[in-house]
């Protein structure tokens, strides 16, 4: 059975993707996850994940590849949507995966420059009144939104913002990711 590779940064990305695939009723058995650990590993051609993946692609075991990684903030090295996208496209080309790849760069859709990470995307999907409270809370406590710890976002989301259901996959902010995944599965057939 030919499979689809999904390359992600950490555990949370994998958990969200798994949940989303179930939510939109795609066949999760077709997925092979490749954990890259941190964003910089996506730009290391010699990373074991790429070696393993290239061999599997060469032997027709994998026919589609999906990259999901954080945009991060513009002031960071390789940060921001544009820089991340440019660098990733160079890597995809050097791997020879242009015709079989799709990618999604996680960010907070509310930001002007499409900055952020998976945690801020999740936080952007909670009801507006709650979000305003949290924004005010972060502002009052002096939390540095750009340089702040991503796990704090995750903790806020998990414990304060959305205690009843894990993720609000029906939110409009998940639409782009859902479209990418649906097209990926359709192209894999």
């Amino acid at each position: 059975m030919t499979k689809i590779a999904i390359l992600h940064e950490g555990v949370l990305d994998k958990k969200v993707i798994e949940g989303l695939i179930k939510h939109i009723e795609l066949d999760e058995k077709l997925i092979v996850f490749y954990s890259m650990g941190v964003k910089s590993n996506f730009f290391d051609k010699k990373h074991p994940a790429y070696i393993s993946l290239s061999l599997s692609v060469e032997n027709d075991e994998i026919n589609k590849v999906f990259f999901i990684l954080d945009a991060d903030n513009c002031d960071k090295n390789q940060g921001g949507m544009i820089k991340t996208q440019e660098k990733l496209q160079v890597m995809i080309k050097s791997l020879g995966f242009e015709s079989i790849s799709r990618f999604y760069i996680t960010h907070d859709p509310r930001t002007k420059d499409k900055e952020g990470f998976i945690e801020s995307l999740l936080l952007s999907t909670i009801p507006e009144e709650k979000m305003n409270c949290i924004d005010r809370f972060l502002e009052c406590t002096g939390f540095d939104k750009k340089g702040g710890d991503k796990s704090t976002y995750e903790r806020i989301y998990k414990n304060i913002a959305h205690p009843l259901s894990p993720y609000n996959f029906d939110h409009i902010h998940f639409n782009e990711l859902k479209t990418q995944l649906t097209q990926l599965f359709a192209e894999s057939k």
Partner: peptide, 20 residues
């Protein structure tokens, strides 16, 4: 018939990621 050869780093990575 083709061969896929993994070295130590890839074996380690693949088993840690529970790849078949």
């Amino acid at each position: 018939l083709k061969s896929i050869t993994f070295d130590y780093a890839v074996i380690k990575y693949s088993t840690e990621n529970e790849h078949e």
